[in-house]
Amino acid sequence: MIDVEGLCFDYPAKRALSDVSFTIEPGTVTALVGPNGAGKTTLLRCLATLELPYAGRIRLDGIDTGEEPLRARRLLGFLDEFFGLYDDLSVRRCLTYWAGAHGLSGDTDAAVLDAATRLGLSDRLEERAGSLSRGLRQRLAIAQVIIHRPRILLMDEPASGLDPEARAGLADLIRSLQAEGMTIVVSSHILVELQDYSSHMLIVDKGRIVDHAPIGGARAYRRSRRLRLVLSRPADGLARALGDVAGLAVTPDGLVAQFDFAEDLEAQAALLARLVGGGLPVAAFGEDHESLQDRYIEKLKASR
């Protein structure tokens, strides 16, 4: 869906992106991560056709963004970290405007209602955008960029400034958009949240791609979770006790094991009982929320 080939972007005294190439498959959610100043926002803005690269080519569903920016933009939705709204317009008029601006013709009321409903704004259509809370403004901004049902959605720090409940809502929305077949790229520093919904991770550092790979194999497609088992001392029967789990990784000291688990909490409890019953010295057992961050730091260190 997104093909980037030899992308270079220069600022006057700094090369922001250097020979960047990657391919993003349709229907995936890619976490775009990297340190501050790594080139994430520049890369997103190039993908969004807002910046013209020094060299290289970007194709969105086969359309060259440099040659046909208007056609490419019809496929795109882009949510900037510092987005703006038309504060003096009602939510309905904001959405109606963007529906027309994105090329929806004829009666746009259905599209407006659909976008408002998906973002939980259907009861606020007549409210002024300027009177909405931060979380609701974020929802309206997202509704505006998806109203034309783009096939590609680019989001730069979408959870910035949101409260925990709104962040959870955002994660649910991203998952539902992915389920509809949208290809999504999310730039964020909050790796724990990215892990909730991302299928791939693209690490950028100093303008180069450090790593681009699925997160936990095909785990994200199956909605599985990654579990982490900590033993108080090494035990020989660990692998045998875990059985045929996917993505098993054991630390060299044999104390920590991580693996994908696609079943429900009952099955997880049964597995724990089996491990303890089998004589394994289990010190901790639960979801592994650090694995994305571990991998990110590991890859970043390896690249330097």
Binding site: T49, L50, R73
Partner: peptide
């Protein structure tokens, strides 16, 4: 901060 959105519109 609505200009980028307009630039991206159709």
């Amino acid at each position: 901060r609505t200009w980028d959105g307009q630039r991206l519109s159709g």
